[in-house]
Every structure is written in C-alpha cells, then in structure tokens.
Amino acid sequence: MQRVNMIMAESPGLITICLLGYLLSAECTVFLDHENANKILNRPKRYNSGKLEEFVQGNLERECMEEKCSFEEAREVFENTERTTEFWKQYVDGDQCESNPCLNGGSCKDDINSYECWCPFGFEGKNCELDVTCNIKNGRCEQFCKNSADNKVVCSCTEGYRLAENQKSCEPAVPFPCGRVSVSQTSKLTRAETVFPDVDYVNSTEAETILDNITQSTQSFNDFTRVVGGEDAKPGQFPWQVVLNGKVDAFCGGSIVNEKWIVTAAHCVETGVKITVVAGEHNIEETEHTEQKRNVIRIIPHHNYNAAINKYNHDIALLELDEPLVLNSYVTPICIADKEYTNIFLKFGSGYVSGWGRVFHKGRSALVLQYLRVPLVDRATCLRSTKFTIYNNMFCAGFHEGGRDSCQGDSGGPHVTEVEGTSFLTGIISWGEECAMKGKYGIYTKVSRYVNWIKEKTKLT
C-alpha cells in the first residue's frame, strides 16, 4: 500500500490518463441519441435557420407576430419608411378606419389613436360632414345658397324668414311668412316636400332668348283662358290664391305678392273693366268669414305684352289694390325667389296649380277651390304637342294621358313649387288646347323671366 501511494504521488498524470480511459469505455446513459432527441424537440425550422439574422431580410411573422416588435424591426421587413409607417399605425392600436367614419364618399386613412378623412370636392370637416359648395344638395341650405369668396357655403332665406341657429334652416321672422300653410287642420295635408338634388348652379339658368321682337298675326285659340281631375282644397291650404270678379264672377285667378299687390295673367284683364279681388276665398257660393274683398285701382301688364300681336306672350300683369290686405292664416303671400332659384325650383319637376275653373272641358265651374299636382314636361315634348308657338318664356306641365289639367277660369292662378315646406311661385296658368285632352298640356308663363320686374313694381313704400 505504501508503494502504491508513492507511485500516485510521483505520477499524477498517469492516474488522470487511467481515469479518462475508464470513462470513455463506459456506456453513456444520461444523453439520448440524435434521433430520439429530435422526437422530443420537434420544432419547425425557421426561415433563416442556421444563418445569422443580421444578414437576412426581415420576416413579418418572425419579427412582429411571434413577439412584439419595434418600429426598427418592422422597418427591416418593409425596407421602406412609408410602408412601415402605414403598417405601424394599425399594428400599434388597430384600424381606426374600420367603422368607416368618413361621410359623403370620403376616404379614410388610419393613424395612431386617430384617423384622417380625405374629402371629395365640396366637403370638409373631420368626417367630411361639412358642405362647402352650393353645387351639392344646395349646400344643405333649406332655401338659398351662395358661395363666399373663400368658396364656403353661405345660406340665406327669402323675405319674412331668418336663418336658424344651425345656419342652414329657415324659420319665420314674421307672423305670416310667405308660402307657408298655417291653418292647423290643413298642415297635415301639406304636399310632399321637395329635397334639393345635386345641381350645376353655374349652368342652372337656361341660355334662352326671349323672342321679344317676333311679330306674329293673332292666333285663334280655343278655350285658351284655361282644375280638371283635381281635388277639393281645404280652407287655408292655398292662402296665396285669390279669385278675380268682373263682368262675371271667378273669371280668373291670381296670387298675393304682398298686402297691396296681386300677380295674374295679362290676358285676364281689360282696361276700363272694374275688377274686384277676393282673398281668403274657399267656396265661392258661401260666406265663410275668411274672405277679404278689395278693388283694383291700377293694372300693370308687362311692358312687352301686346294682345294685338299675341294674347299669351309675356302673359303676366300686376294688380294694385285700393287697401292693403290683412295677412292671416287664410290670406298669405306666395314666396318669389330670384331668377336663378325660381328656375331651379321649376326644374324640380312638379308643381301645384289651383283655381275655381271648370271641372271638365266646357263644363261647370268649381264651387270649392280645386288643386292638382302636375309634372313638368320637357321642352321637346311640349313643342311636338301643339302647332302653336311655345315661346321661351312659357313652359308645359300636365299629363300625356289627359284627364287632369287646369281649365277655363283658372287662368292667372299660381303654379307653385314647394321647397322644404315653403311654396314659391314658378308659373302662372296661361293657356292650353281644350282641357285635359290626351297628348295636350297646360301652358304656363315662366315666372323666372319676370321676377325682377315683379319685385321692382310691387315694392311697398
């Protein structure tokens, strides 16, 4: 034993070699072989497995989906700052455009905790909710729209109204504003409101030439003092309507412009014939205590009207009353817009006519005020429907199939267009061939041609 100890002390290297040989010859039971080890760690190889990531292109799944990435790591994937920024906006807080917040056709661009709407022409605001041009839906104005110097929408209202708090709607500024039905039992019968379409306001006024200088022999019209197929109006439903009495009662109609003036057809009036105007009328054979009678003290036909040349060209006249009318729910003026808007309103496509005229061709006159909704007829169809001249200051309205029309005794009465609950004068009943005849239409004086003249002559002093 002493000898062994001496050998170990003198030859430590020998001992180490012996131990190493023993270990190498022993069977290893701690580690699995290569094949079995792979069965336990069965993990798919990654895209760049075996390579240094710093030297390969980034992978979106590896960089940002398996674990949260930084902007720089995302930049490695896209290799483009702009594309990385677009991805980053949604990656950080989701897609803010998912709810489609942009209105009126706006395009949404996502941002971090926010979004941006790219608005089409005519709109602005956070969600493109603000109209900035009158060309689109009248700028959301209830009545009139004008573009300011910086191309912003400025709404306005006709006389007797003021802008509401929203700067879009119009509200009454006087007790009985024009064009409004205020009798409670008839307010439910107000005709369907007309909503502004998209309009090209630059070209809204037709490029028409008034044929002022045409000389033409007097034409022989049949029954051209021209509501057939209409309905009984309720008291106060058309408070701007008046009836004219002269040699015979209810020979023509008219509309209240203001307390002192009536507008009617020029062919209705004769110099030297006494005319009485009755406002607030409903049943011409009954006294309903809503009527107001006034005498006409002055007749002003349009300066281009000449019955000797043509009885229905420039067929418009103004009547001055001896005493002002007292405005109330049964006696209310009709609204008159400017030339541009009167023309736009007419193009809405349908209007209402009213009167006490004959209820059928050569038949009896109506006792109760009649009204009828009539569609506008395109000019080409209008011209083809008659052998008589249709001037540019006239328009056609009615039904091709016949059966409904204005008729004798309705002449001078109103053709009105309702705009968001307020009625505007767009025409004056003038003439036609018979009444409600198939293929024939009622012919009306186009008020847009005469609004400046009306307003100039009827100013209240």
Rank of each mutant, 00 (worst) to 15 (best):
Q408K: 12
C268V: 00
D95A: 09
F144P: 00
F121K: 04
E281M: 12
V202I: 13
Y161H: 04
C382H: 02
Q96M: 10
Q237M: 09
Q57F: 08
Q219T: 11
V77W: 08
A207W: 12
A307K: 11
G272W: 07
I15V: 07
G351E: 01
Y115E: 01
Y161K: 01
P414V: 11
C141P: 00
E288Q: 07
E66G: 07
I40L: 13
V77P: 15
N310A: 11
I336F: 04
T386I: 09
G105N: 05
N295K: 12
R373L: 06
V353P: 01
G402R: 12
F238R: 04
K446N: 10
E82I: 05
C128S: 00
N222Y: 12
L383R: 14
V92L: 10
I210R: 09
I344N: 09
I428H: 03
E67A: 10
E259V: 06
R62Y: 06
N393E: 07
S156L: 07
G349H: 09
F144W: 02
F78V: 15
Y371L: 10
N245R: 12
H303N: 08
E171D: 11
V243P: 02
T29I: 14
W118T: 02
G246M: 05
T417M: 04
E66S: 08
F395G: 01
E61A: 09
I15Y: 06
A9I: 08
E53F: 06
K188G: 11
I336R: 01
K168F: 15
A233N: 07
Q219M: 13
V278F: 04
F55H: 15
V277M: 03
N304H: 08
A397G: 07
V269C: 10
Q237L: 09
N113T: 11
H302W: 06
V154D: 09
V228K: 09
D405N: 15
K152D: 10
L189Q: 07
A149P: 10
D315M: 01
Y330I: 03
T225Q: 13
E286P: 06
S204K: 15
S148L: 13
L41W: 10
I40S: 15
L369H: 15
Y312Q: 06
C119N: 01
A308G: 11
T158K: 02
T194D: 12
S354M: 12
C268M: 00
G351Q: 03
F87L: 06
E418Y: 10
Y371A: 13
H415T: 00
K387L: 05
T445K: 00
T458G: 03
N147R: 12
G427D: 01
K234P: 06
F121T: 04
N203T: 13
E401H: 12
V227T: 11
S107V: 07
